[in-house]
Nucleic acid binder design. Structure first.
Length: 113
DNA sequence: AGGGTGACCTAAA
DNA sequence: TTTTAGGCCACCC
């Protein structure tokens, strides 16, 4: 009797994927959304991360936008927590932007396959 | 019940 | 090439 698990499932799916992101790697909202089948709803991925921030231990700092910019750093506990975390993992960040984002890009649809 | 916003992305001019 | 507009779905007022 599934009433409305659709959206719940979507959120859970995001958590799973983000948790599967290897250290020193980064991915984009669109990639996750596309992997989940919500290519046009990348925004929901962002919402999912917000809702998951205080709840789950998901490395949301490994998720950035298409350009590799730390757009969500503002929503972290600290404004620079995201960048600090990324650098701690080995990811170089400059001006709130991931360096070699193309190389560090982790696509679930390809890596997980 | 309706409108506005948002950790975005794609397409068109 | 850059800029502008639209779309998407969930949450808040």
């Amino acid at each position: 009797m599934a009433k409305k698990e659709s959206k719940d499932n979507f959120f859970q799916n995001v958590y799973e994927v983000v948790q599967l992101i290897p250290p020193g790697r980064v991915t984009s909202y669109g990639a996750i959304a596309s992997y989940l089948g919500a290519k046009g709803s990348a925004r929901m991925v962002g919402w999912a991360l917000i809702a998951s921030h205080p709840l789950t231990k998901i490395p949301a700092h490994r998720v950035v936008n298409r350009v590799g910019m730390l757009t969500g750093s503002q929503h972290f506990d600290a404004p620079n927590a995201m960048q600090e975390r990324l650098e701690q993992e080995g990811v170089r960040v400059e001006n709130d932007k991931v360096v070699d984002f193309d190389r560090l890009f982790w696509d679930p649809a390809k890596e997980l396959l």
